[in-house]
Design a protein around this nucleic acid. Structure first.
Lengths: 223, 223
DNA sequence: CCATAAAGCTACCGCGAGTATAAAATCGGC
DNA sequence: GCCGATTTTATACTCGCGGTAGCTTTATGG
C-alpha cells in the first residue's frame, strides 16, 4: 500500500493549492510536496531532458529525492499513468472547446486538429507516456515498422487516386493512418478481449469504416 | 563495427543451411551459429517466455551466450529491427496472398483480415517488436490511454448510429481505430518531418479519409 | 520538554544491457 | 604432424536504473 496517502489534512492548514481545512488534527512532520507538484516537475524534467529521463533526475528536478517521489506517486507505472491522465484531460478539454457550435464534418476536422495541436505542444510528455521512457527502442522502432508497412499501401492509394484524376498527396498520411488504425485495433483486440470479438467480424467493421467513412450517420456530436 | 560480418564462406563447406561454397578459404574457428538461427531462437524464446524476455534467456535458448548473440545480431535495437523485418515480410506475404483476384472493398477487407490473423499468430513477437521488450510499462499504458481517449468518441458514434437507425455495435472498435490512427499519424508527424506538413493540411486530409472513406477512388489494387 | 508520528534522505540491492579479456577451435604453412 | 595465425566463443565483469530498508529529521500533542 504505497500510493494510498491518508487524506487527513490540516497541518499548518494548507501548503499551497488544495488547502482543505479538515479539522482532523494531524501529527508529525508536514509533507514538503504533493502529488500534483511532483507531476508538474516530472513534466518539466521530461520537457527539458527528453523522454528518457531517469526517475532520479525527475525527483531532483522537483527538489526531492527518489524515495519521496515513490512515496507520493508510486512506481514508474503510476507516474506514467498520472501523466497520461493529465494529458488526456488536456486533450479532452481542447477537443470539447473545438467542438462547440460545430457538427458533422467540421466537428470531426476540428477534433482532429485539436488533438494534433495538443500532442504537438506536449510532444515529449506524449512520447514518455507512450513508452519512450524505458529504453528508447520502442518508439522509433514502432515508427520504422509503420512506415515500412504503410509504404505499399500508400503506393496503391496514390496510384488509384492518380487514375481517378485526384491529387495523390494524401496517400502517404493515409497509409500511415490505416496502419496506425490496424496497429491499435490489433493491440486492443489481442490484449483486451481475446476471443470475444472474432476476426472476421472485426475486419468487416473496420472495412465499413475505411470504405464508407463516417458520413452517412452523423459522426460525433449530438445535433 | 560490430554487425559487419565478413561474407567469406566455406569453412568446412557449409555448417547447415545456406552452404554457399565460396572458394575463398577462410581461417579460424568456424561459427557455431548464424544470424537467422539466432532470430529463430529469439522468436521461440519470446513465444515461450513472453515479450519481456531478457537477452540472456534468448541467447541461452539459442544454445549460445550473450556475446555471441551480440556479435551476430548486434544490440537490442538491431534484434528488434531484425524481428520486425521478418514479421513484416510475413505480413506482406499474407496480404499479397489475400489480395489475388480481389479488388475494391473485398480487397480491403481481406487485407485487414490477413494482417489481423498474422499478428494474432505471432502476438508475442509483435508485442516485443512494439516495445514490450524494455519495461512492460509501454504497451499496457498505451492501451489504457487509447481506451480512455476512445470512450467519448465511441459514445458519440454509438449515439449517432442509433439515431440513424443503425447497429451501434461497431462504435467501440471504431473509436479505438480512430484513436489509433491519430496516435500513429501524430507520432509520424512529430517525429519524422517536423514542419514539412502543417497541422491544418494534415487534419484536412485525415478528415477526408475518415469522413468519405476510400470508396470513390479505388482503394488498393489495380483494376 | 518529551513522546509520538510522519516524512525524508542516505545507502543499499538486484537485474539486465552491453563489454574486456582469456580460452578454444580450426586452417595454412613448414 | 606440429606451430602460429586467425576467428569465434565463453567467463566474468562494469554501469546505470528502478526500487527499497532503515536511520534521521521535523513537526505536533500532552
Amino acid at each position: 500500500m504505497r500510493g494510498a496517502r491518508p487524506e487527513v489534512g490540516r497541518n499548518r492548514a494548507g501548503g499551497g493549492r488544495g488547502a482543505r481545512n479538515t479539522v482532523v488534527t494531524r501529527r508529525g512532520r508536514p509533507p514538503r510536496t504533493d502529488r500534483e507538484r511532483l507531476l508538474d516537475a516530472a513534466e518539466r524534467a521530461i520537457r527539458r531532458a527528453g523522454p528518457q529521463v531517469s526517475l532520479e533526475r525527475i525527483a531532483r528536478t522537483a527538489g526531492v529525492t527518489k524515495p519521496a517521489l515513490f512515496a507520493h506517486v508510486g512506481d514508474r507505472r503510476a507516474l506514467v499513468h498520472g501523466l497520461a491522465e493529465r494529458l488526456l484531460t488536456r486533450i479532452e478539454t481542447a477537443v470539447q472547446t473545438a467542438l462547440v457550435g460545430r457538427e458533422g464534418r467540421a466537428a470531426l476536422e476540428h477534433m482532429i486538429r485539436a488533438q494534433l495541436d495538443t500532442i504537438a505542444a506536449d510532444r515529449h510528455v506524449y512520447a514518455f507516456v507512450n513508452g519512450a521512457g524505458a529504453g528508447d527502442t520502442t518508439l522509433a522502432s514502432t515508427l520504422t515498422f509503420a512506415r515500412r508497412a504503410a509504404a505499399p499501401l500508400a503506393a496503391g492509394i496514390a496510384e488509384a487516386r492518380v487514375r481517378a484524376g485526384e491529387d495523390p498527396a494524401p496517400a502517404e498520411p493515409w497509409g500511415i493512418a490505416i496502419i496506425g488504425m490496424l496497429h491499435m485495433v490489433g493491440l486492443w483486440w489481442l490484449g483486451d478481449r481475446d476471443r470475444q470479438v472474432d476476426a472476421a467480424r472485426l475486419a468487416a467493421q473496420l472495412t465499413d469504416l475505411l470504405w464508407n467513412g463516417l458520413a452517412p450517420p452523423i459522426p460525433n456530436e449530438r445535433s
